[in-house]
Amino acid sequence: MLEGKFEEASLLKKIVEAMKDCVSSCNFNCTENGISVQAVDNSRVLLISLLIEKDTFEEYRCDRNITLGIGLGSFSKIIGNGANSDYLTIQAEDDADTLGIIFEDKVKDKISEYNLKLLDIDADLLEVDAMETDATITLPSADFAKICKDMKTLSESLQITVTKDSAKFQSAGEIGSGSVVIKPKTDIDHPEESITISLDKPIDLSFGSKYLSDIIKATSLSQKVTIKLTEDSPGVFEYKLPSGYLRFYLAPKFDE
């Protein structure tokens, strides 16, 4: 049996919102250590890797490993019915064909229960474990979201170049071109505003703007995003959870 209680429904809402426009359904793999998901979008360009560690939950138990096939659109509709501040418990028997979703209002004496029909999802898993990284950028997630949105107005591609002391985001299209350069910055009073850039090799990569638009839907999950780049490899965009992460692996574009 699986039972996981979130302190606030808002966390699961944000996770599902960040995933549902990229993949319509995916398997949630539940073990005694927590819940993980790997899912790839239909075009096989963007991969989502989610880890919700046991410590994220107020209460968690999973007696036997369970795989829950979940339609994210339907899941989103049901969890949208709870208030952000509600306790949210997910519950499934070992051979369940439904997932129980329970909201508890912390002020009123009110409990709401829903059941989500589970799906049988046959998806292959990709081997993504070992990756070298040539450059790592950590910046405020809201800043990264704004850069992606602004550059998308110009082109369907965003070029990221990283040198020793700066990262440059640029786009060029029919109406013109634009660029944003960021440099490392330490803000002691507001550490969430700090920017770090570490580099082993200079980077020059281009990514599809429409996939970046999907990635930045995770912005509300974390004040920071970490971008790991390696020449001619997928970029990794990581949003940390209180205990765990939501990562996106995005295949780069190639120049002709």
Partner: peptide, 14 residues
Amino acid sequence: MSGQQSLNRFFSVK
């Protein structure tokens, strides 16, 4: 011109 690569080029299926 530029084209979009697939993740399949980089990751093998488990």
